[in-house]
Amino acid sequence: MFEDLRDLYQEVIFDHNRNPRNFRVIDNADRKVEGFNPLCGDRLTLYLKMAGDTIQDASFQGSGCAISTASVSLMTEIIKGKTEAEAEALFKTFHEMTTGKTEDIQLEAVGKLAVLAGVREYPARVKCATLAWHTLDAALKNETQAISTE
């Protein structure tokens, strides 16, 4: 019935939506930032535990659509063990991939995150995928204020 959406709603996305990874609070988190998309009401809180400039642990709480839940779930998996600079570089690549500004993005560079590349065909849903990453960006910059997609 939903053949046209196969690129957007891949099985990996359904899986992360049903069973989000790292869906917990880090009690002694070094960074904690809230992200909010006022257009759709998606809300998440991102927690980071740092070891020097390396992200030792990442987790989140909140509620959102399948795209935003899968995006933040995948992100918390992939950024663990990355340095701040590596995570920032990944944010930049992810952003380019989802907003379609680069025609030939190296999908290998983003690993599992490539399942979210489909949102670029759905402008109304891009912010669902990028909310997690904007929140991470704020956390890496050590901002404590809640961020908003609008």
Partner: peptide, 21 residues
Amino acid sequence: IHPHDIGTMLDSLGIAIRAGH
């Protein structure tokens, strides 16, 4: 199932509804 997912999936069937607040 979040309303925005409902909206996108129904749109793929040609159905226009509103999802949001």
